[in-house]
Design a protein around this nucleic acid. Structure first.
Lengths: 241, 241
DNA sequence: TACCAACCGGACATAATTCTCCGGATTTCA
DNA sequence: TGAAATCCGGAGAATTATGTCCGGTTGGTA
């Protein structure tokens, strides 16, 4: 949103489409498209119709497809800075002195980011490996992640059989919860994570965040069903055959 | 598959479409459609194209839509017996003497059923409240569920702040994991559930099932992305603009 | 200022899915 | 057996999303 294109990255050119040599109006439109995509993806997930992105950006569909030939190109451009921010979480967690606090921080911050951004949620689970950005980011952080886990285990606060891949397991679980509860019980995922962190800890068990009420649960499921593809089916009367 | 239509249910008529008074060929086709739907839904989830159901059933699209005007009608008919089987799990768990074993059995069996049946997974999370069957089944078992939880808590083996709604939380999390890992790491969900059960228990922590290897994790994500909407995009060469 | 290359945008072709219509075939019952 | 009620099935209209094409416009440069 702020400095999504900083000059130092010009060499990397990770977004798949050349940025240099663009005419002024082309560059302007590119920015508007990326910003619109970021919003739409955050609201609707990575499967959102691209025409809607073009509309919000105020450009024609042709402009969008010319600049970003595939959906993946657009996804990469839209989440470039967001992924950097996510990546920074691991390093920030490593800077914490308390190994357990660092570990919890990683899980909680990752899940929190996914809870507020459907696109990011898709990106970190379903689509992770199809994205070039994610690949490089994953490389860059697999090491930090392993380090964070090992440090907590050596401190004796994390169970020995925990493996770094479990983080992804947790992210998938988190995605499953947020996908359904996002609107009616936006904090349900915190309870899931609290359970999982309690299970990771060698011993102990801390009080859980409030559970969603039955009403919240019901509305979570209902609301999500309405949001997804379950429209009134278009049929008005019975067929009189 | 075997006795999905037992005469004693004729009074209930829960499937939304009348079954009595159907001509012989109509009834035959109805059965074939329901069986085909059960298979397709199990393989592809509840959003599978209905034409595919018609094709596998060996009937025309018109026949399918005449018998089941909405997708929900077909879903209900297809999962009628499956839901009864799921419902029986709770009662079976209650018949176990050990409260903790009963509780674990409930969670594990529910999740196992979801892991092998995409349609059931959808039904128990995303679409649960839109289904009439699920509503009645939910009524019937909310009580047994509460009883199972309370029993375990009174025995001192289940943490006091666990609530029956947490079961749904676990199911959503399980759905999130199985959705992604179904093909490449079909047992990843067991590890998640083991974590969650460990967290539920008041104290203790048992060894976890094997974690998915990095290769499995990668293939899980890749395979799932291929299966879902990420086809080759239809474009072959670069656009030469 | 004037020209050309680059770019814009919407109309259009394509594809997938849902749902309907109706001529023709089949079953049932007298 | 024969007629009438019922049902079948595929063609096709409507909808939604994707990706392309081309006439017209704009920005940059001489």
């Amino acid at each position: 949103m702020s400095g999504w294109y900083s000059g130092r990255m010009a060499a990397t050119e990770s977004a798949g489409t050349a940025r240099r040599g663009l005419r002024a109006d082309a560059l302007r439109n590119r920015q508007r498209i990326v910003e619109a995509a970021r919003q739409i993806f955050e609201e609707q997930g990575l499967d959102a119709p691209l025409d809607e992105v073009a509309e919000r950006a105020g450009v024609g569909a042709g402009t969008l497809y010319r600049r970003f030939p595939t959906r993946e190109d657009l996804v990469e451009a839209a989440f470039e800075d967001e992924l950097l921010r996510v990546a920074a979480i691991t390093e920030e967690a490593l800077r914490r002195e308390d190994p357990w606090a660092g570990f919890c921080m990683l899980v909680e911050r990752l899940c929190a980011a996914m809870a507020t951004d459907r696109g990011l949620s898709d990106l970190l689970t379903v689509r992770l490996p199809t994205s070039q950005v994610a690949a490089t980011m994953g490389e860059r952080h697999a090491q930090a992640l392993t380090q964070l886990v090992r440090r907590a285990q050596e401190a004796g606060v994390l169970r020995e059989d925990f493996v770094p891949e479990d983080i992804f397991l947790f992210l998938m679980a988190n995605a499953g919860v947020t996908q359904v509860t996002r609107h009616a019980a936006p904090h349900a995922w915190r309870r899931l994570i609290a359970y999982l962190l309690a299970a990771c800890r060698a011993g102990h068990s801390e009080p859980l965040p409030a559970a969603p009420t039955p009403l919240q649960t019901e509305r979570a499921l209902l609301g999500h069903a309405e949001t997804k593809g379950l429209r009134p089916t278009g049929r008005d009367g019975q067929n009189k055959s």
